[in-house]
């Protein structure tokens, strides 16, 4: 927390119809889009800049102050593996790791992630192999429609990172904030336990 920088002050808008509130509410991003397409050509200020490490790669992006981390990952970085199911911190589909801890990225402002490290589902596999959790999800058929899967896997990754050999109850608790409407929880729990065993055996 201590070394986090406050978001930079947004520059004053120049276009007459852009208010300070517009900047804060993100209108500017849309107007920027229009501008890029050659419409409404007046010069507009860019949203403030943040720097994050996403999946071990350092990224700079301009994000309106109000934008959630989930939206920033999906819209600014195109990392659509992180899903938005409710946008209110109820379903867990947007779970990512922020400095190693699981967070609902729909409840986390992108600017709160400034200077920090984010892990998403896209960063889990190495170039030549799936992470044991990913492999176990396939082996145990731990998903059906798959929409909850990235969040489930990231929540379990956080558990396995801090506890090598969890029991079934700990696995169950770890995904208790992740809804699977297809109801495949028992296979998720089995996959979590299998991945833990696999990691314990040295991968």
């Amino acid at each position: 927390m201590s070394d986090r920088k406050p978001p930079p002050e947004p520059p004053l808008p120049r276009g007459p119809e852009v208010t300070r509130r517009d900047l804060l509410t993100g209108r500017v991003a849309g107007l920027m889009l229009d501008r890029l397409q050659g419409e409404e050509p007046e010069a507009l200020p860019a949203p403030p800049l943040i720097r994050l490490t996403v999946n071990r790669v350092s990224r700079e992006l301009r994000v309106p102050a109000h934008r959630t981390l989930a939206e920033a990952l999906r819209v600014n970085l195109g990392l659509t593996g992180t899903k938005i199911g409710c946008d209110h911190g109820e379903c867990g589909a947007c779970t990512v790791l922020l400095d190693g801890l699981p967070v609902y990225s729909c409840l986390t402002l992108a600017h709160d992630a400034d200077g920090r490290s984010v892990e998403t589902i896209e960063g889990l596999a190495s170039s030549d192999a799936l992470h044991p959790l990913q492999q176990a999800f396939l082996t145990y058929d731990a998903f059906q429609c798959g929409f909850c899967t990235p969040g489930m896997i990231m929540a379990l990754k956080a558990l396995l990172d801090r506890r090598g050999t969890p029991d079934a109850e700990e696995v169950r608790q770890a995904v208790s904030g992740n809804l699977c409407r297809c109801g495949n929880y028992l296979h998720v729990i089995a996959a979590g336990l299998a991945a833990a065993r696999s990691l314990g055996d040295g991968g």
Partner: peptide
């Protein structure tokens, strides 16, 4: 399935 576990699966809500 590999698309799902790696976040590559593209749902229509992912289309931009």
């Amino acid at each position: 399935g590999a698309e799902h576990v790696t976040g590559q699966a593209r749902y229509s809500s992912d289309v931009q």
